[in-house]
């Protein structure tokens, strides 16, 4: 029957794709806990590689978490008020500004990194500090925060809600805290999870901006892929998965929730 043949074909493609995405990930998980990958699982399981990774790269992991947190704080401080400002001020200026800050979504990180390096590369204290990497991360993640919050704000009747609060005596500042922020919360949450997830995994910009003393988690990963034995590289990847997968799941859940509200 034609109908079920089409269905079988679809299922086949779906399962094959699934295998393509899942198998190497499982391989890396297995390789990270196998005593000797070339002999196979029969060589037994071990946590030795993970311990070694921790010894070698703990500072990279902690640095990434720290930068992700700082990046979150920065995007919250810059992005949430900005999304509110854009929502309250819909005009050509806001559209141009939104388009402009979204450039890092389109322009490859490599190009942005080159631009940053050429302008600030000679500013010694800045170039070598972790804030230089942070700037790159904020640049890349900020549009996600702004858009996520803006999407939620632009579907509610913000102007009237604010007029309501104002008629009850609330100042601009109080309205922002009492009305805007709580009602934008689903968008803020989705944006925050996206920012943290992307910051922890960011490589393109970071590889160009980092210094030998400032290796983030993905930079360390690239380093281990190039110079360490397969088991250590795999174990490190496993640790990365353990950090990133829950974040990704939370991020997708929060984004879907925010989209439902914004729809």
């Amino acid at each position: 029957m034609e109908y079920s043949r089409a269905k079988a074909l679809q299922l086949g493609v779906t399962l094959l794709t699934c295998a393509f995405l899942l198998v190497p990930a499982l391989q890396s998980v297995l390789a990270g806990v196998t005593r000797n990958y070339f002999i196979g699982i029969s060589s037994g399981f071990t946590l030795r590689w993970i311990a070694e990774v921790w010894e070698l790269y703990a500072h990279s992991i902690m640095l990434s978490i720290g930068i992700a947190f700082a990046c979150l704080v920065s995007t919250l401080v810059i992005g949430v008020p900005a999304a509110y400002g854009l929502a309250r001020n819909p005009g050509w200026f806001s559209r141009v500004l939104e388009e402009f800050i979204s450039l890092p979504l389109a322009v490859p990180g490599l190009a942005l990194a080159l631009a940053l390096l050429q302008l600030y590369g000679s500013v010694k204290g800045f170039r070598t500090s972790w804030t230089f990497v942070l700037v790159g991360h904020v640049l890349y993640t900020l549009p996600f925060m702004v858009r996520s919050v803006l999407a939620v704000l632009s579907v509610m009747d913000l102007k009237t809600l604010e007029e309501g609060a104002a008629s009850l005596g609330a100042t601009s500042w109080r309205r922002f805290w009492d009305i805007v922020v709580p009602n934008a919360m689903p968008g803020i949450l989705a944006g925050a999870l996206t920012v943290v997830t992307l910051s922890i995994g960011e490589f393109n910009l970071t590889w160009m901006l980092h210094t030998p003393y400032l290796k983030t988690l993905p930079v360390g990963l690239a380093d281990s892929y190039a110079s360490m034995r397969l088991e250590i590289a795999s174990a490190y990847t496993l640790i990365f998965f353990i950090i990133i997968v829950p974040l990704l799941m939370a991020m997708q859940w929060a984004s879907q929730r925010a989209q439902r509200i914004a729809a």
Binding site: E202, F203, L221, A222, Y225
Partner: peptide, 21 residues
């Protein structure tokens, strides 16, 4: 979940997964 989770995997990790394949 399997099909959507790699959404934010960094390129280096994906490169490594291809090497594993």
């Amino acid at each position: 979940s399997v099909l959507t989770l790699p959404l934010a995997f960094p390129g280096v990790v994906i490169g490594f997964l291809i090497i594993l394949l």
